Simulated assay, not measured.
Amino acid sequence: MIKVEDLVIELKGFTLKVEEFEAKRNEYVIIMGASGTGKSVFVEGIAGFLKPKRGRIVIDGKDVTYLPPEKRGIAIVPQDHGLWPHMSVYENIAFPLRIRKVNENEIRRNVKELAERLNIEHLLNRSPSKLSGGERQRVALARALIIRPQVLLLDEPTSSLDPKTRKAALELLKMIKGSVTVVHVTHNPYEALVLGDKIAVMNRGRLGRPKDPREVLLNELSYYVDEIREATSLIGL
């Protein structure tokens, strides 16, 4: 589904190099690594927000390397959720369909169906400023899913949530697992073990190949060792 080959993205004082990366259809791939290693640069590159110096990004057999974000079949949920404060929840979710000139009746139907699925139908008339962190996360996910993307990119989607809300968010992400190809950036080993089919490690701008989550967490990310022990005991590994 996603193939990245010989990708180089240069920013001021930083270079991202990805020799090879692949996420299969409906696979859930976690990207982990220390802060500042290039994880967000990678997902923004896939999304089309950053232009590469060289390389290829292929989605479902189509080279999208130099296509604009809206032409890639990709949706992204940024770390801050990125909701527009001047729009209601309904308008936030509907916006991606509006810019694609979808019929208003179809927009209403799609928003209603997705809001019911994510249990946010009672929030549709509210302002994002009136939502809790967990509610904003669900709305941001709804806005991403409304276009039925081939690929969903999640940049630390639970980092700002309290433990109770984070647990609910993980349940939500487990609901969509297997229905869309996901690339999910996180520092949380529990999230990685619960959600990830594979983990790829980012280290100083270099991304390793996706591997089995337990192998990566126990053998490659030694600085997570205490959290890993707790996480693996919680889920019975």
Rank of each mutant, 00 (worst) to 15 (best):
P213E: 08
I74A: 07
E191A: 10
F21A: 11
P149D: 05
E230Y: 13
K53F: 12
G48F: 03
G38A: 05
S132P: 00
L207E: 04
R72Y: 06
F14P: 11
K198T: 08
E121I: 05
V41T: 13
S233H: 09
Y66P: 09
R206W: 03
H81T: 11
G33Y: 02
G45A: 02
E20S: 15
F14G: 11
K71Y: 14
L141G: 00
E5K: 15
R204P: 01
F14R: 07
K198M: 06
K12D: 12
E227V: 00
M87Q: 14
N103G: 05
F14N: 06
P96V: 14
A47G: 13
G82H: 14
G48Y: 05
H187I: 13
G73E: 02
A200C: 00
K174Y: 05
L141S: 04
R148P: 02
V77G: 12
T15A: 09
I93E: 04
E19R: 10
P52M: 06
R56M: 06
I107P: 00
G13W: 11
G178V: 04
E227L: 15
S40W: 00
L237P: 02
Y66Q: 12
V225L: 12
T37M: 13
S88D: 07
H187G: 11
E91G: 04
K174L: 14
G205E: 03
K211C: 08
E215D: 13
G82L: 10
I120A: 04
V180P: 01
N26K: 14
M202C: 02
K62H: 09
D197I: 04
R126M: 02
K71I: 01
Y90A: 00
I57Q: 09
T232R: 11
R148I: 04
N188S: 15
A94V: 02
G196Y: 03
I146A: 01
L217A: 08
K62N: 08
A23E: 07
V139H: 01
L7D: 01
K177M: 00
I146F: 02
H122F: 08
V18Y: 11
E116F: 01
L145C: 08
K39H: 10
N105V: 07
M87G: 05
P96T: 14
T158W: 01
I31L: 13
D63L: 07
K177D: 01
